[in-house]
Amino acid sequence: MEEKFEPKIVAFVCNWCTYTGADLAGTSRLKQEANARLIRVPCTGRIDPVFIIKAFENGADGVLISGCHPGDCHYNAGNFHARRRWILFKNLLDFIGIDSSRLHFSWVSASEGKKWVDIVDDVIDTVRAKGPFKQYKKMNKEIEIPVDVEEGVSAK
């Protein structure tokens, strides 16, 4: 039987809205697939696009970024600054060949536990359909240093 591909999703979420929303999903015992690893940041404005690149470098097949709805930012304008950056970065990645099936954005408030679950499941399905991020994995492989536990780092 062919093994089902389980994508690795890295989700950068803001402390005040989405993280709390995801927490609510948990306390409400909503069922959710387990592929997303959450990274909590103070605000979506804190997410430098280099984080997204780093996630791919570390084996992510897809990235989800989520924060407070416009107008609800704990720091007033962090998400507005972030949104402008995303428009540019998303277009850049698209032009380079990393399309929107690997990079997702959402607004999820502290009370939207259900929305969070739906979005995560949707992202997982989309990335699963797209398949593993082979191109990045190939680049990662090239620089892997073979490690021998007994001998420490060994040359190939």
Partner: peptide, 29 residues
């Protein structure tokens, strides 16, 4: 997306570092 060209006006604020509440967000779920 923003009707902006950098380096064309001495008084217009730079694109990055400012924002508009009406920036597009059709890609955000």
């Amino acid at each position: 997306e923003f009707g902006y060209r950098h380096g064309m006006s001495l008084t217009e604020p730079a694109l990055i570092g400012t924002y508009s509440t009406s920036d597009k967000e059709d890609f955000i779920k």
